[in-house]
Design a protein around this nucleic acid. Structure first.
Lengths: 106, 106
DNA sequence: TGAATATTTTGCAATATCGCCAAATAACAG
DNA sequence: CTGTTATTTGGCGATATTGCAAAATATTCA
């Protein structure tokens, strides 16, 4: 049945890998609220423009975001609302981890 | 509001990073069906036992799996069913990517 | 055309990840 | 205790990721 060579697994893991970086996850959550251009994201992140642009290219490559040019600026937005659902789905796990952490302290 | 220093973002990205590897995602989907021990996972994956064990430790560290010893064997299982939901939530994106790919070919 | 602004690309050094091997640890059976 | 099996850990080379700086590209405006 499910094999490690299943292309679906690789496709999914590429998407999850793209989400698995603080800066990129932050970008995703920002543009989930409202599309934003690189210069604004750069300000909110506090990193070099080239760094932000590279993260965006990784997200683009994984198909997570779409870009739209307006003048010299490029606005990025989520390519699928389901990405929000994916992240939201992990809330119970986060809570569980906090609960376990509190128990561990005792 | 949402800042790049928000610990929640880092916690979430750690989880997603752990999921962002083909072997680890495969493990997650396997044990989502039914808990499995390292030796069985090793067979299904076709990698060194130590490699599988190390992937499992990453998943453990991210709080995604829990272990239970039975004799000399260690059985791993999902720590939260929500992980399945997280992965399932991405199906529309996968479909979207396929659709885009087909359009691109024309 | 030429200056100004926004973004991407390239180059590079620092760091992290990956996968195998070998050694260490743990649990059980005889 | 000894040998056996299952798993984890440490070590190490190969490869990938990360982030900044500099150069290249694209678009607008004068």
């Amino acid at each position: 049945m499910g094999s490690i060579d299943n292309p679906r697994v690789h496709e999914l893991s590429q998407i999850l890998k793209a989400l698995g970086h603080p800066t990129r996850l932050f970008i995703i959550e920002e543009i989930a609220e409202e599309p934003a251009c690189v210069c604004v994201l750069k300000e909110r992140i506090g990193a070099d423009t080239s760094t932000v642009s590279k993260h965006l290219s990784i997200l683009r490559n994984a198909g997570l975001v779409t870009m739209e040019k307006k003048g010299t600026m490029v606005y990025y937005s989520l390519s699928c609302a389901c990405i929000k659902d994916c992240i939201k789905a992990l809330s119970p796990l986060i809570e569980l981890k906090h609960k376990r952490y509190c128990e561990m302290l005792q």
